[in-house]
Structures are given as structure tokens and as C-alpha cells.
Amino acid sequence: MGRCRPEPHDAFGMMLVFQRSEISAMSVLRGFLWLLVFLMLGQALVRLFHIPMPSGVIGMLLLTLWFGYRGGMNADVVRISQPLIAMLALLIMPGVVEIFFVADQFADQWTAILTALIVGTLLSVLSSLLLMRRYLPQSTAESDLRSADHE
């Protein structure tokens, strides 16, 4: 009692474990198939209508619309999307490696690049914080705190 997973030391339990992992593997593959189909739909739209946008983004928007139309998310897609999104850092690492080898190609531009990135990012953080403080309705706790500050 209270044990939710069969111990794999008896033949029957082993079979259950296999069956279960087979079900989840199938679900992951089905979810992957969904993603690939929507990616291809995105590629098709990009080619057909000369949309100047990445096909993955079109696929993402189409899939969001599809979820909205169906009134919920497909469980298979949710299951595959979690590990895929968690893997993003791994997937872009090869690109980061390349920067160490092409660095001298941009040798005379590093000051411009670094200034643009660091000053630009600090400025955009500042303006988005100010903008949102102006327009985002304050939660009650926050406004209480604020009025207390003013007194």
C-alpha cells in the first residue's frame, strides 16, 4: 500500500514499467511531431507570402492560435515543450563558442559594441521601469506602502 511505482524485480512489475515508459515516450514523440508540423506550416507561410519573419516564430504564433481555438493545450505538446525549453541554453552554446574564434574580426569595433550593449541595456531598463511604474495599476499592498512613504 502507498507504493505508487511497481518494483521492477518481478517480471510483471518490469512489464508495467516498460509499458509506462513506452506510453510517455510515445507521448513525447507525438508532441514533437506536433511541433515539427507547426514549424513546417510556419515555413510554408513564410515562403508563400514572403513574410520577413523567422518560420519558428510563425509556427509559435500559429500553435498559440490553435490552442486558443481548441480552448486548451495539447498534453503531448506540453510534455515535450518543457524539456525543449529547458534545453535552450544547451542549444545555443555552440554559437557562444564561436565568439571566441571570431573576436579579432570585430577587433576595431569592441568599444562601440560594448558601449552600445551596456549603456543601451541600462537605458532601456531605466525607461521600461519608469514606463511601467507610470502605467501598471498598483497592487493594494504596494499603494499602501507608497502612501505610507509620502506621509
Binding site: 509559435m60 493545450m73 525543449l84
Partner: peptide
């Protein structure tokens, strides 16, 4: 490594899940 980066396409489509949430 470009074989790994091939997965970026489906991973972009997968961002539909947090967006919908």
C-alpha cells in the same frame, strides 16, 4: 554542433506553451 542547433526550430515553436499560459 549544428545538429544540436537544428532543435532550435521546434524549441521556438514550443514557446507557444508559456505564451498560451
Amino acid at each position: 554542433a549544428s545538429w544540436l542547433m537544428l532543435l532550435l526550430g521546434p524549441a521556438t515553436v514550443a514557446l507557444a506553451v508559456p505564451l498560451y499560459q
